[in-house]
Design a protein around this nucleic acid. Structure first.
Length: 256
DNA sequence: ATGCCTATGCGACATAGA
């Protein structure tokens, strides 16, 4: 079972690129982030025609996540528990063919310090709590998405250039270490323990041609999922396409 | 030190992204 994550940065603008990529790579599950539309605005017909079911947790103008799947998906959670006044559409989870799949759009957190950064750290803790609940089920779980954290200096082109950014702050990295320290397996680092493995290149300042990238899109695997890990990868070439997203798809292949 | 670029919304600029 191939499970992918792709921050599309606007489903409206990105639909042709998304359909190309689905047709080419045929993931069984695709977790989307930043669809930037309400549920009714999601292009269900085009996704259905491409051979996928769609679960959508949308929001007007920004945020919004979705789970596309070849098999029917049963929703298990919509929104992250723990902060009732949080109305951002950033989390959706489903059972797909016996695997629990979560699509995650963790807050960016800039500018920092400030309320957006505080929200990011709270959200990170709430995700860790949900992850612990899933961990306890001993099921195969894949938490895939845009975590908005560069875990180590290997995960960005220039540590000094990003020193003030919310994606690399010690508190952000500590939150990532707490989550992964619980035992969740970083799929890309399982197949490539060190070195650049970027998943995002800014639209600005020639970041793509200069390879000034970040690794911020991650798939975390529970033990039962990690036991089935066959391979994982990054579809880098998607970044070179016409009207590309600033993120590219990242995926894991599970045996069985 | 700052903006560079892109997507969206009831828009003719602002907000958000990272």
């Amino acid at each position: 079972m191939k499970i992918a994550t792709f921050n599309v940065n606007g489903i409206g603008a990105r639909l042709p690129r998304l359909l190309d990529w689905l047709a080419e790579t045929q993931p069984d599950v695709a977790c989307l982030q930043e669809i930037k539309t309400v549920d009714d605005g999601f292009p269900v017909d085009a996704i259905t025609a491409a051979g996928y079911h769609a679960l959508v947790h949308g929001q007007k103008g920004f945020n919004g996540v979705a789970i596309l799947s070849k098999l029917p998906a049963t929703e298990t959670q919509r929104g992250l528990p723990g902060e009732p006044e949080d109305d951002h559409a950033r989390y959706l989870e489903a059972d797909v063919g016996g695997v629990i799949v979560g699509t995650i759009y963790l807050p960016n957190g800039n500018p920092q310090p400030g309320p957006k950064f505080d929200y990011k750290l709270r959200w990170f803790d709430r995700l860790r709590a949900r992850a612990a609940t899933l961990w306890a089920t001993e099921r195969a779980v894949v938490l895939a998405g845009d975590y908005n954290v560069c875990p180590t200096p290997d995960d960005l082109f220039n540590e000094a250039a990003m020193a003030g950014d919310a994606l690399v702050q010690p508190e952000t990295r500590a939150a990532w270490r707490r989550l992964t320290g619980d035992g969740w397996r970083d799929a890309i680092r399982a197949v490539q323990p060190s070195g650049a493995a970027y998943t995002f290149w800014d639209y600005q300042a020639g970041a793509w041609p200069r390879d000034h990238g970040l690794r911020i899109d991650h798939l975390l695997l529970s033990p039962a999922a990690a036991d089935r890990l066959a391979t994982a990868g990054i579809d880098r070439t998607v970044r070179a396409g016409e009207r590309a997203s600033d993120h590219v798809p990242v995926w894991v292949e599970l045996r069985g």
